[in-house]
Design a protein around this nucleic acid. Structure first.
Lengths: 107, 107
DNA sequence: GGCACAGTTCCATGATGTTCGAACAGTAAT
DNA sequence: ATTACTGTTCGAACATCATGGAACTGTGCC
């Protein structure tokens, strides 16, 4: 598989999300920070560059991949960049209260 | 440090619990199964033998250690064995709704 | 005391995750 | 077309985790 930036990346269906995978995706400080950032208000869409703080882009991309494959975030092409957003409604329907509990936890 | 079975094992204080550590502890199928088992009713206390299904005791002990150090479970000496239980109230006070969300998730 | 039992710790092995530079591929501008 | 920009993928070094057998220790029973 070539390194195509703008291929439609695989996003798991809501019904296929595994709790353990979601919990693992959220169990990393940087990924947790990304999720919190995307949860700051409704419909937050950010380019990959602007999430996760200062880190090499390959590292950031790796964490975004982990979150995406667990079903936590969406990552869609948008012009020359990619926009990342929380799959909040879908996550809430599959694991009610989980995201709220994680987000409302004291840092 | 010798392998003393009945030393008082270290249990982190509630205020020191880290969300990422708790989420990681819960992100493993076997550990999740243990937590679910301990959550079947109030005040469930079980010997280590009886949690986590069929697995070598060293493997079971490893997972119990992970859960204990994250602050998810308690592990106290009791006669010749050890009793394991959920730190439910403490967990609820530190991360409200988290355990409920995890436990109510469809398997 | 001696023995069986429960469970932790040690150790080694393999699997998985993290990090980051380098190469690569769309996109959009000049 | 060439160039700059964004972000993914590859590859490799390193770290961490999972698994399970063996050794060991506290406890209770004989």
């Amino acid at each position: 598989m070539p390194a195509t930036v703008h291929r439609d990346l695989a996003h798991p269906d809501v019904a296929d999300l595994a709790l353990a995978d979601v919990l693992f995706a959220l169990s990393d400080p940087m990924r947790l920070a990304i999720v919190r950032q995307l949860a700051c208000g409704p419909l937050v869409e950010l380019p990959c560059q602007e999430v996760g703080g200062p880190a090499p882009k390959s590292t950031r991309s790796h964490h975004l991949k982990t979150l995406r494959e667990a079903g936590v975030i969406r990552n869609v092409p948008h012009g020359r960049e990619r926009r990342v957003s929380l799959r909040r409604a879908e996550l809430d329907s599959r694991f009610p209260g989980l995201l709220d509990a994680v987000l409302s936890a004291a840092p």
